[in-house]
């Protein structure tokens, strides 16, 4: 008897805990990344402001040969990842999962997609164009971009995602399978494993909650 009462309590608290986490994560996504406190004086008093981690300016070229910058994503959320077209391992799964999101947010102008190639030698504008048309997607909704190797690897660091050349990996590159969610203020709001359908569903739910919240604030 004592055993079952104890398990009941454990079970109930577990349910409460998970529901609590879910509630928090969907309606109040934190801003991720390093923060910097800045002290300043307002009316003679010292106030501490927080500088949040922000994605710096960038400029890449998309599958249509057009320049893609922060302006491309003005007033929008975007989901970004790092991949390469000849990747034999996780990229096809990431592309398939990104397509699920692309289809789901097709009519939502406030949501866009940005895929960076990490194989800048092979993945030219033409190769990216070919890839995008084979999966039947187009810019400006979904931008496939290339640029200098330094710029791509540099921006990957800003997204706190990893991307590097690695001769020992299949295809020659190692990279994270993360989908990173960026808000209209260029802040990182979430990381999701782009290879896991459940994580992609979570992204979908959380992004919809953010969009709904924004509507309320208007």
């Amino acid at each position: 008897m004592r055993f079952s009462l104890f398990s009941l309590i454990v079970l109930i608290s577990a349910i409460f805990q998970t529901s609590c986490v879910e509630y928090k994560s969907e309606n109040n996504l934190p801003i991720l990344g390093p923060r910097e406190p800045i002290e300043k004086e307002v009316d003679g008093k010292v106030v501490v402001d927080t500088i949040y981690h922000t994605i710096p300016n960038f400029s890449f070229t998309n599958q249509d040969g057009n320049e893609v910058t922060q302006k491309t994503f003005a007033n929008s959320y975007y989901i970004t990842d790092f991949f390469f077209t000849s990747c034999p391992t996780i990229c096809p799964v990431m592309t398939k999962n990104m397509l699920i999101l692309y289809d789901d947010f097709e009519g939502e102008e406030r949501v866009k997609f940005l895929s960076h190639t990490i194989d800048t030698r092979h993945d030219s504008v033409e190769v990216l164009k070919n890839y995008a048309s084979k999966i039947e997607v187009s810019a400006p909704k979904w931008n496939f971009v290339t640029g200098s190797k330094e710029d791509i690897y540099g921006i990957a660091e800003s997204y706190l995602a990893s991307a590097a050349e690695d001769p020992n990996s299949p295809g020659g590159y190692i990279h994270s399978g993360a989908f990173v969610l960026i808000d209209p203020n260029n802040h990182i709001r979430g990381y999701y494993d782009g290879t896991q359908p459940q994580a992609v569903e979570k992204l979908k739910r959380e992004l919809k909650a953010l969009l709904k919240n924004d509507e309320k604030l208007k």
């Binding site: 034999p88 096809p92 592309t95 397509l99 890839y131 048309s133 084979k134 039947e136």
Partner: peptide, 15 residues
Amino acid sequence: QNCHGIDGNGLKGLY
């Protein structure tokens, strides 16, 4: 499976 899919349907015009 990564390319040809869990359902064997491939991926659009790619695989």
